[in-house]
Structure formats: C-alpha cells, structure tokens
C-alpha cells in the first residue's frame, strides 16, 4: 500500500522523460493553473465552515439528534448514535472526536462501539465535500446530489449496523 504513490511517481517521471517532456516546466505550468481555482474556493469555504461551526456551537446538533432519534431507532439505529450520525456529514474531525467519546463510554468492542465505528467509517463529510467541489466548479449547489448523498449515508448506517450484528456478534 505504502509503495503505490512513490512507485507511481517514479514510473510517471521516467515515462515523461522518455517522451521528452520537460518535467520541471510542465509541473510549474500545471501548478500555476491550479492556483486561481483555490482562490475561487476560499470564499465558499469561509461561508460553509462558519455556518457549520455555528451549527455545532449553538446546540442545533443536539436538538436535531433528539428530534431524529425516534426515526433512527425505528430504522434499527440505537439512540446513542444519533448525535454522531447528525454530526458526521458536517465535520470529519468532530465525528472522530465524538467516536472516541462513544468508544470510551460504551467500550470499543461492544455493540454500540462497533456500530459507531462502522457508521463513521462507511459515511463521508458530505457538506464539506459538496462545498469544495461545487465551489471549484462554480456551481451554486449540487441539485439533487445532496439528498441522494444523504440517502446513501443512511443506507450505509442501517446496513452497517445490521452487518455488525450478523458478522461480528453472531
């Protein structure tokens, strides 16, 4: 695994040299083209991260998780995981910190701990990814990609918990 990138890079440079490409020049040219995109990205990131940060500190996450807990429980997701699942699409580092709390409270190898680990591992920070990618492409929003992504995450969590029961606890 750890060799994939270095070996790939060496092969790339050897191949490019055979093809008589000026590697240094090509590298600088590509990097220079990339810079304007980053500048365009910054305002989008500022708005989104400010919104996420306020969303977390205002207690909205707790309120949403309390409201959604009964719905999630009906889908077989224990209520101990509702805050984690609400936070996950907004913040990757926040979700990992909360996962660590959950594992310390309920044990890393019990049902709650295993379920929490699988849920965090099989889902993504959707809002962050969407902000970066849409900002780069100059699109206002991802259209129906957001609800589709959220449906995907929910399916990941529900199937993940079922798989923990089938594969690990039976």
């Amino acid at each position: 695994m750890n060799y994939i990138i270095p070996v790939g890079l060496i092969l790339l440079l050897i191949y490019a040299t055979i093809k008589r490409v000026n590697c240094y020049e090509a590298f600088v040219e590509g990097a220079a083209d990339a810079f304007p995109t980053l500048i365009k990205l910054l305002p989008n990131l500022a708005a989104m991260l400010a919104a996420i940060s306020i969303f977390r500190s205002s207690g909205a996450v707790e309120i949403l998780s309390r409201l959604s807990a009964p719905v999630l429980e009906a889908l077989g997701i224990p209520k101990e995981l509702s805050t984690l699942l609400i936070l996950r699409p907004f913040s990757g580092s926040g979700a990992l910190a909360l996962l660590s709390d959950v594992l310390n409270t309920y044990g890393a190898d019990g049902f709650i701990g295993l379920a929490a680990s699988v849920c965090v591992g099989s889902t993504e920070t959707i809002f962050y990814t969407m902000t970066v990618y849409c900002g780069a492409a100059g699109i206002k929003n991802g259209g129906y990609a957001l609800p589709a992504a959220l449906i995907g995450s929910l399916a990941g969590a529900v199937s993940g918990i079922a798989l923990v029961k089938i594969l690990l606890l039976m």
Partner: peptide, 10 residues
C-alpha cells in the same frame, strides 16, 4: 496538479 500536467504532456 503539477504532476498531472507532466502526465498530460506525456
């Protein structure tokens, strides 16, 4: 992006 540009030129 710099590395990709090398790949593109090749």
């Amino acid at each position: 992006m710099g590395l990709i540009n090398i790949a593109k030129r090749a």
